[in-house]
Design a protein around this nucleic acid. Structure first.
Length: 557
RNA sequence: UGCCCGAUAGUAUAACGGUAGUACAGCAGAUUUUGGUUCUGCUUGUCCAGGUUCGAAUCCUGGUCGGGCAACCA
């Protein structure tokens, strides 16, 4: 491992480098430990990129370990979804493990602590235990069951396992210090009784270890060198170390970093669930959701999400990342790889009065000006075209570079045209625009010597195919919905989805398949939605292009 | 008012006792057959008060502010 060539890019990598250098460990083994009770979101992506990234960077490995110690909330369905999302993000784990793989081992660990006089069975009710726990400012008091003999504890714990007791009747607790200033050290519960079917072990167990008596021990069993988690576990670290020390097992170490927050969205599982259950979004994979599946359906690339996770950095301070950075990352990637196509979202008819009615010219156009190897394709040009309604104004403001009576623009990859007139209906809407094309101005063969400020996109009226386009925007109207008065759902952006049921696309798009990504010229990046069928294409807007004209208009109004 | 984290431009992040840098956002301009891309320039910052030091964002002390901890959740 050529250590000299890599440079730590955050404090955790510095620790890893130090550990490798001093020989605290010979190699790096990290783990990503999701609980299979929900879907992954971009906050998990930060953790995934961190854990897998460190292993890749320092020549180590990463285990995927499901933290499945609570059978009441966990399901195999989530296991599969989580695995799929991690693979899609571009990572491969060295081993797939489950905390439940270690239930027998964990039971033995508990017995060992009982034998050492460091754990006891408590018959107190959950309310009594809570009451005796004290508060952050007052010490707790010891349970009357705290000083049972080793033999009695052994027997009782065995009986707990055998199913002699009902849920909640007894628990196994670590015997530490009821007056510790750290609440987690006040005789934390190690095992509770749950007569529940587990997604992997079925009915084999009716006692299940708590997080604190499963996570660190699982790390240790796997010989995880760096167990990286989020800040809320800082207070658990003394307990994490206490168990390892008393059990005399492999000394994995825990390190904590601040979780990701993003502007204009929410990240908590609870709130995300609420959005789904109350129908604010169509599901966990709704393109407005910050879930991995949502981002995927929205058209985000794995590369862009990885890039984002690397750019935001890793620290211990609370943070809220501007979603415009995420948008920058996807634009940057898609700009390089997305094929350009022309789609008119809000069509108005344009008639070229001096163009022969029966003529069709197939004009070559670049697939991607950023990528010379992307080649060209041909688009059909005819007398009647559709253009964007907003690309024409009867009375244009200053600096408007598009079409207006008497003004000229270039039709992308085709001809320069000059507007000669238009028609309106009774409601005052423009129904048809008339123009004359300049035959000498054909793209690539321009001998017109005309200079125009604007270039607009278009589709042939006789060749265009109708498609559905879903225009997504930020889910919330405020930067931080978590910190507003009232319900966070009060701040949902009412325009986060606008459906264009009949946009008109150039015919080459007929070949598009779900998850194909395109740049609709001048409109943004779009991705084919899985709802699409052979004769009904649906596109999701991933993100708009940067739009300095829209910004200009905003300033004027 | 117990314990634990933390505090650098609008948002993130670097500087590891020696010139406060980078990205995104914002602003201005150049280029452009996408008002895209690209390029150039600009604005904005060390929470406060003491101390140590030739020298402090960095070390020490005391404040202030923000976050976490009292689930048989993870």
């Amino acid at each position: 491992m050529p250590m000299e060539e890599v440079k730590a890019s955050n404090f955790i990598e510095e620790i890893v480098e130090e550990d490798l250098r001093t020989g605290r460990c010979q190699s790096v083994l990290t783990r990503f430990p999701p609980e299979p009770n929900g879907y992954l979101h971009i906050g998990h992506a930060k953790s995934i990129v961190l854990n897998f990234g460190i292993a890749q960077k320092y020549g180590g490995e990463t285990n995927l370990r499901f933290d499945d110690t609570n059978p009441e909330t966990e399901e195999t369905e989530y296991v599969e979804a989580i695995k799929e999302d991690i693979r899609w993000l571009g990572f491969q784990w060295a081993r797939e493990r489950y905390a439940s793989d270690y239930f027998e081992q964990l039971y033995e660990f508990a017995v060992k602590l009982i034998r050492k006089g460091l754990a006891y069975v408590d018959d107190s009710s959950s309310e009594e235990i809570a009451r005796m726990k004290g508060t952050p400012t007052e010490p707790g008091i010891e349970s009357p069951y705290r000083n049972r003999s080793v033999e009695e504890n052994l027997r009782l714990f065995q009986e707990m396992r055998e199913g002699k007791y009902r849920d909640g009747e007894k628990v196994l607790r670590a015997k530490i210090d009821m007056s510790s200033p750290n609440m987690h050290m006040r005789d934390p519960i190690m095992y509770r009784i749950k007569h529940a079917r587990h997604h992997r072990t079925g009915d084999k167990w009716c006692i299940y270890p708590m997080y604190d008596f499963a996570h660190g021990q699982s790390d240790s069993i796997e010989r995880i060198t760096h167990s990286i988690c989020t800040l809320e576990f800082v207070d658990h670290r003394p307990l994490y170390n206490w168990f390892i020390e008393k059990l005399e097992i492999f000394p994995s170490r825990q390190y904590e970093f601040a979780r990701l927050n993003l502007t204009y969205t929410v990240m908590s599982k609870r709130k995300l669930l609420q959005l789904v259950q109350k129908g604010y979004v169509s599901g966990w994979d709704d393109p407005r959701m910050p879930t991995i599946r949502g981002l995927r359906r929205r058209g985000y690339t794995p590369e862009s999400i990885q890039d984002f996770c690397e750019r935001i950095g890793v620290q211990k301070r609370e943070n809220i990342i501007d979603v415009s950075l995420l948008e920058f990352c996807i634009r940057e990637h898609l700009n390089k790889i997305a094929q350009r196509v022309m789609v008119v979202l809000d069509p108005v008819k344009l008639v070229l009065t001096n163009y022969p009615g029966a003529q069709v010219e197939w004009l070559p156009t670049e697939n991607n000006p950023e990528d010379p190897t992307a080649g060209t394709r041909e688009v059909p040009f005819t007398r009647e075209l559709w253009i964007e309604r907003e690309d024409f104004m009867e009375n244009p403001p200053k600096k408007y570079f598009r079409l207006a009576p008497g003004m000229s623009v270039r039709l992308k990859s085709a001809y320069i045209i000059t507007c000669t007139g238009f028609e309106k209906n009774d409601q005052g809407e423009i129904t048809t625009i008339y123009a004359e094309y300049i035959p000498q101005s054909r793209s690539g063969h321009d001998e017109s010597a005309m200079k125009v400020k604007g270039t607009i996109h278009w589709v042939s009226a006789t060749h265009a195919i109708p498609v559905e386009v879903r225009l997504y925007d930020r889910l919330f109207a405020v930067e931080n919905p978590d910190e507003q008065p009232g319900e966070f759902t009060d701040y949902i952006n009412p325009n986060s989805l606008q459906i264009v049921s009949r946009a008109l696309a150039e015919p080459s798009l007929a070949k598009a398949r779900p998850e194909d990504r395109f740049q609709f010229l001048r409109k943004g990046y779009f991705c084919v939605d899985p709802d699409s069928t052979a004769d009904h294409l649906v596109f999701n807007r991933t993100v708009t292009l940067k739009d300095t004209w829209a910004k200009e208009m905003k300033k004027q109004s």
